[in-house]
């Protein structure tokens, strides 16, 4: 049999309800069940989480930093998407 290693998984943990799942790190596991159990053992040993997602790293499609310009710079001048773009008199509070 050809030598096969345990693939790499990415682990996302929700620290508490109301918060999003955040990338915590990675680990190796042979299957999803093991990945989930290992993630629990590795990344929540200090009570850090209430929910875990695992996904095999190879299934993640990442943007390429070389395309940084075309992907992200066009958003830089869309200042009208931010609240500070709009001038309001000081009397208008909490808007």
């Amino acid at each position: 049999m050809e030598k096969k290693n345990w693939p790499l998984w990415e682990v996302f943990v929700r620290s508490k309800n109301g918060l999003e799942h955040r990338h915590f790190g990675s680990l190796h596991a042979a299957d999803a069940t093991m990945a989930l159990e290992n993630a629990r053992d590795v990344y929540t040993r200090r009570n850090e989480g209430v929910s875990i997602w695992v996904v095999e790293s190879k299934h993640i499609t990442a943007s390429n930093p070389e395309n940084h310009g075309e992907l992200f710079e066009p958003a830089q001048d869309k200042v009208y998407r931010h609240p500070t773009f709009y001038d309001l008199p000081d009397e208008v509070k909490h808007m």
Binding site: M1, N5, A30, D31
Partner: peptide
């Protein structure tokens, strides 16, 4: 042990 886990995962898949 590691091989067994891989083989089992393959069979399950």
């Amino acid at each position: 042990v590691r091989d067994a886990a891989v083989a089992y995962a393959d069979k399950q898949a």
